[in-house]
Amino acid sequence: MENIVKTGTPTRARAATLVTVGPPARLAEAAGVLAEADEAGSLRHVLISTTGEDVPDVEGLQDVTVENVRPQFLNNAVAALRLSSLPTVVWWRGGPPDRLPAVATLADRVLLDAEDSLPLWRQAPALFGRTALTDFRWARLTRWRGVMALLFDLPQVREAAPDFQRLRITGNDPAQCALFAGWLASSLDWQGRVAVELERAGASASLSKVELDGPSASLQLALHRNGACLTTEARVNGDVLTSRVLSLGSQALPSLLSEELRVRSRDIPFERALQQMAS
């Protein structure tokens, strides 16, 4: 049993081709993120500039870079560089929104990460059956959703849920706030019963507070002053049912990218939240 040819230290198995699409500045930022992401070593990287400008040098990454490709041929570039033996993940950091469907069709997974999500979200429902698509704004909501779900584990909260009347969300990213509202409305099947107020706050946090109120119960999630935790409180009939401080987890781009790369299948709650927003 001993005459084994030593193959040396095992190299990282390639788990996917990650195609990053965007303008050069956003690609440069992505390169920095990739260098820090846990999964970087297991990815085959392809960077595609959407403006015809040079793709910045990315030290330490084994990349294929594509420059000077006209927007209408973005999908051709992806088609040429994807491998049938690896899942293809497209990280969309910018580019003409109308090219998204053609690119998405070639991908097993699409991570939307544009500065303005709304034009992409309008196109997204038509793509749900063709690829697994989510948005980084959704990834930033994971912990918030988890904490809200924790409160709904309490039978008293679930009992009071049909009577909630008002949802108030505060943050400086209206799209992200609306997405959270869309998730709650679709998950709890509000059908317009609950008044939703989105308040844009001047603080730096994309989402800083969620308040859900009814005659007998109120729930509150708020970003802790340290920015790294969430404070939660559930009141039922005036009594504090629970009050906790919970970690928000890392909201840094490398962590979010790692989280998104672990998702390989359709995210139905995200799809429902977007459809809820559209309605």
Partner: peptide
């Protein structure tokens, strides 16, 4: 009547947590 399940746990990336313990 308290709904039996937690509707927010559906496909939550954070896995379900136990009830009060």
């Amino acid at each position: 009547m308290v709904p039996a399940g937690n509707p927010l746990l559906d496909n939550l990336r954070i896995e379900p947590t136990p009830g009060a313990t």
